[in-house]
Amino acid sequence: MSFKNTLICEEFRSEVWRYIDGTFSEEERSFWESHLSSCLSCKMLLDETEKGLSLYENLELEDLSDENFDLMLKKATGAKRFLQYFSQVFNIKTRIWKTNSIKLNPAFNKIALSTAAFAIVLAVMLIIYPLKPKINIYFKEETTKEPLNTLDDSDVSGKGNNTPAEIPLREENKITDTEKAIGNEEEYTEAKHSTGIKHETMDWGGEKVKKSIDGVSNSLSIIDAKDNWKDHGMDQWAMKTKAISVEIQRLEKELNNSSL
């Protein structure tokens, strides 16, 4: 045995831990054992390392008081484990992505189902709630809708492409300027319905006013074209004409205001 400082010795310095841990193959171990039997420096390196480690390992370990340890455990196990709760409820295996199976545990069936039902109801409510205003508009539109007698909406508006959601609601029981001009709400309403002009159209403003005017003018021309109106009751046709004329004036006024 002699002191050497060869390349093999250099390699042993980096391999000494594997040697100590015993993670060598039999072949490697026998190679290093034969080297150690002939190399004093490597043998000393190994001995010193093992001795140093054993000295450290023999040191008394630190410890904390039992009282502190118990408090720590109590606090630790008192911490909620959400994952555990859900895994118990649904008996989901922890490595769910590997097992591909979710089985309902009979012991937790009731809790699971009631939780699921509650979640579904909540989800539905959350979906419906933002749509509530639109639904209200739709239902009000449906209830205020009257059957048309003579002209349909397309005849009056020209195109008839107004959807219920797009039409602003008229305030209930409010008498408009047009109605005041006529002075008789019942007659006015009757006239409107009989000409097929929906109150939404009559109260409509903004950009579609012009379209409404065109539609009403069209209706008026149709009425004018009816030569035999006198035969069917003069008062009714006069009322219709009056209502339409007043509405045209109102709409033109609105148009002017909006253009200003």
């Binding site: 904390l64 720590m72 455990l73 630790a76 484990r81 994952l83 555990q84 895994s87 922890t94």
Partner: peptide, 13 residues
């Protein structure tokens, strides 16, 4: 140590 025990308890699943 306390933090380790809490994490170990929560993470043992």
């Amino acid at each position: 140590m306390q933090e380790t025990l809490i994490k170990a308890w929560k993470g043992i699943l």
